[in-house]
Simulated assay, not measured.
Amino acid sequence: MNYYIDVEPGVSLYVEDTGVGQPILFVHGYPLDHRMYEYQVNQLPKYGYRCIRMDLRGFGKSDSPWESYSLDRMADDVRAIIDTLGFKQITLAAFSMGGAVAVRYMGRHAGHGVGKLLLFAAAAPYITKQPGFPQGMPVEGLDALIALANRDRPQMLQEFGKLFFHNEPTPAFRQWFDSVQLDQSPRAIIACGHTLRDENVKADLGRIKAPTYIFHGVYDRICPFELAIIMKENIPSSILLRFDNSGHAIFYEELDLFNACLLEALRH
């Protein structure tokens, strides 16, 4: 079942709703959309899970306003989805930038309606280098990507996309992956680049009360594994799951292990 949910006047978000049973709300990363979870949604309904995949504003089939791409606004969009669908104890599962949105949601909305949090290669608490944390991406690197997006977006996406994988996927998968990136709103690509560069969710980590599972690849070049360690240290009742042969594309590079760990976390 596919439908749209209004989150503010003039802005509707696209949702794909698959299966019946315990609900999971999936939030995608940058610069992807709901399609990134294809190989999870192909399996989970078999085990009694209802998979709700939303497209963040500016991505996939959702509306793309000119402004309002802050983490606060996108967290409020998640709240609108949860409230509209009437969820009380949903599992919130989020990747990369979506992970930052989910963490902000848990802090800003006190975990409203969420019974469990799953973070996949989350861009949390930040992805840029910080004082005392030299492992993140340099701010200048993100500035260069944003500048490139303003003059050659396909090249920017190709360069950024290469950072996702520790193990190069098949040419066919790479072609599909690149096509998904190219489908996204040019405005959202630039605006969310600024959001990733300028915002962080460090203060939100300690406000998370729901049981939390942190999935992270050791070879992640976008959100270094050190971020997972920081999340584990700062999120109460969190469990870190280490993927020793994955980069940022943790949802695909060790697909069988990822799906097995996902099922285990959902059942626990």
Rank of each mutant, 00 (worst) to 15 (best):
I230M: 12
L240Q: 02
A249L: 11
K46P: 02
A265V: 09
F120E: 01
E140T: 15
M1N: 09
R79Y: 15
I250F: 02
P211N: 01
V15G: 02
H166C: 05
G107F: 00
A147D: 15
I24C: 00
W176G: 11
D83K: 15
Q89G: 07
E67D: 12
Q155G: 05
G115C: 04
G141Q: 09
G136F: 11
S185H: 10
S185V: 10
A228E: 04
A121G: 15
K129F: 05
G21Y: 08
N42S: 13
R79G: 14
I127M: 14
R50H: 13
Q155W: 02
R104Y: 03
I214W: 01
V41M: 02
V114R: 01
I146C: 13
P23W: 05
I229Q: 15
S237K: 14
R50T: 02
G29W: 06
I222A: 00
M97K: 01
K61D: 05
P154I: 04
A100T: 08
K116W: 07
Q22C: 09
S12Y: 09
K202H: 13
F164W: 11
P131F: 05
V78N: 00
A94K: 03
G86T: 14
E8G: 03
R151I: 06
R50Y: 08
D152H: 15
L266T: 04
Q184R: 02
L255M: 13
E140Q: 15
L241S: 09
I5T: 12
D244G: 14
V180I: 06
K116M: 01
N167H: 10
L182R: 15
F95D: 03
S12N: 15
A122Y: 05
A147C: 09
L263A: 03
S185W: 07
M1D: 13
A94I: 07
S246Y: 09
A191Y: 05
Y49F: 14
I146L: 06
F243Q: 02
S237T: 09
H112L: 02
Y14K: 07
Q135H: 12
G86H: 14
M36F: 08
L142W: 07
I146P: 12
N234S: 12
R73D: 05
D256H: 15
E264K: 11
M1K: 14
I208V: 12
H268N: 05
V7P: 02
P134A: 14
M36P: 04
N245A: 11
L56N: 14
L56Y: 10
V201A: 10
F26R: 01
M156I: 08
